[in-house]
């Protein structure tokens, strides 16, 4: 659970996980609801909300965890429609595609990427400090993970 809490902190967010409802299966973490906890058996393959996995000591968050964090106070960049689509296609984000920033603007910080509807598309790392005017043709957020991954997994 430490890895999940540390990951949330990288995004400027705080998450409290009840250890009674958080289960580890192999290298994957799941969050159960109360009803599920009553009926769960040891040999499950998947359960409740998938939070992410640890591989080679590194935590890889699920998109469900990112969506949970997006509802909290966290570093967030909101992007326009075209940028949202390019981000889902695996591309990085240009300064001019950002319509709002919440939390840290500083180079090196991690930030959730939201579309115009406030839905979380993934997350990235700020590689140039974000300016307030929102202009510029430089890549400012490096794509780390986006929901287009659901399509790429199927290939």
């Amino acid at each position: 659970m430490k890895s999940i809490i540390s990951f949330a902190a990288q995004l400027g967010a705080t998450i409290i996980l009840n250890p009674d409802f958080t289960v580890k299966k192999g290298n994957r973490y799941f969050l159960l609801n109360q009803n599920l906890r009553k009926v769960i058996r040891k040999n499950f393959y998947y359960a409740g909300t998938y939070l992410g996995k640890v591989k080679n000591g590194k935590f890889f968050p699920s998109f469900a965890l990112l969506a949970i964090l997006a509802e909290k106070k966290a570093n967030k960049v909101v992007v326009d429609r075209k940028t949202a689509w390019l981000f889902i296609c695996g591309r990085d984000i240009f300064q001019k595609g950002i319509t709002a920033v919440h939390g840290s603007r500083r180079k090196g910080a991690h930030a959730l990427v939201l579309n115009e509807f406030g839905e979380c598309l993934g997350f990235g790392r700020i590689i140039r400090t974000l300016n307030v005017e929102g202009k510029g043709n430089d890549v400012v957020v490096k794509n780390i993970s986006d929901v287009g991954d659901f399509l790429r997994r199927e290939v």
Binding site: L31, N33, N35, L36, V39, I40, R41, N43, F44, Y45, Y46, A47, G48, T49, Y50, S62, F63, A64, A67, V147, F150, R153, E154
Partner: peptide, 19 residues
């Protein structure tokens, strides 16, 4: 099961245990 798990994750299902 992998396709099933991806489907559940994508659609934010939180009340299901898969075996």
């Amino acid at each position: 099961l992998k396709a099933l798990a991806n489907h559940l994750e994508r659609c934010r299902v939180s009340n299901t245990a898969v075996y």
